[in-house]
Design a protein around this nucleic acid. Structure first.
Length: 277
DNA sequence: CCAAGGCCTGAATG
DNA sequence: ACATTCAGGCCTT
């Protein structure tokens, strides 16, 4: 039985940063669209089109049954029955996680808001003003100095270069979604500012690739603390170690390992009282 | 001065 | 000659 989506749990799980609660509704920027949601899902879209932002088209029963092979993931699913993996705008997702390196959630959010305010179009929706996410062309042609004013530091040049690669067609994010997992991850790593971790975030949060298993400091900590069989003994990992650990994770958690990662990540951060949006 | 959801570069190793 | 690993640096609050 598929459980209902819970906005609080889903928005506050580190997948998105441009969301805010206004009264009883959540509003979020998704590319050139603004989504308005109640506690359970999208109720209105600025563009008026149908979006499957919450990935309701995927068979959640299959996914949950698959990752419930692990006891701890099972517990986390009980704790967060409404947590879902999203299908975000791919370009926004890419820029988001490029800016996320070495940054806290609050800092990521501040930087992205500035990018939107400076380079995105302002629209009025539901009596409120929003700044949409900058389009690839705009960021590609923006001056580096202007991008730097958004407070994203050394990531600025990556943002510009990455936007250029999307803008001129060197990289096609939708194409990545059609490749096999390892090929897709490698393909995305050609983008400046994108390493294995960021590539996995793009694949998992916007391209429905469930084998993607972002290995950040938190997930590494989780694995070494609760999964001794993984034998994680380093704090930071090399390219090759990333591969090995990733493949072990898919072997253990199954083809939908990325979902397992999201539940574990959410649970561990809450346990440490880390702040969300 | 340190920490915060990595990535890139150059140099050393095998 | 290669493929890996290692150590710093990096913007900002």
């Amino acid at each position: 039985m598929p459980s209902r989506i819970n906005l609080e749990q889903t928005i506050n799980s580190g997948q998105v940063f441009l969301w805010q609660k206004c009264g009883k509704f959540w509003y979020g920027i998704n590319g050139q669209d603004v989504l308005k949601c109640n506690g359970m899902g999208v109720v209105e879209s600025f563009c008026g089109g149908v979006t499957d932002f919450f990935g309701t088209s995927r068979d959640d029963v299959i996914v949950r049954k698959s990752i419930s092979r692990d006891k701890r993931v099972c517990d986390a699913m009980m704790q967060y029955p409404g947590l879902r993996l999203l299908k975000q705008d791919t370009f926004q997702c890419m820029i988001t996680f490029i800016t996320s390196t070495n940054a806290s959630i609050q800092k990521i959010q501040a930087g992205l808001k500035m990018l939107c305010r400076k380079f995105g179009n302002m629209v009025e929706f539901d009596g409120l003003e929003f700044f949409l996410f900058p389009e690839p062309d705009i960021l590609a042609h923006a001056s580096l100095a202007e991008i730097q004013k958004c407070g994203i530091g050394y990531r600025s040049k990556y943002v510009k270069h990455a936007a250029q690669m999307i803008s001129d067609g060197t990289i096609n994010l939708e194409d990545a979604g059609k490749m096999k997992y390892h090929e897709a991850r490698k393909y995305l790593c050609d983008i400046p500012g994108v390493g294995n971790k960021v590539a996995d975030c793009i694949l998992l949060f916007s391209l429905e690739m469930d084998e993607a298993f972002p290995l950040d400091r938190w997930v590494l900590r989780i694995l070494q603390e609760y999964y001794p069989d993984f034998e994680i003994n380093t704090k930071s990992i090399t390219e090759k170690q990333y591969d090995i650990i990733h493949d072990m994770a898919v072997e253990y958690f199954g083809p939908h390992a990325g979902h397992a990662q999201q539940f574990l990540f959410k649970m561990e951060r809450d346990k440490h009282n880390k702040k969300w949006l």
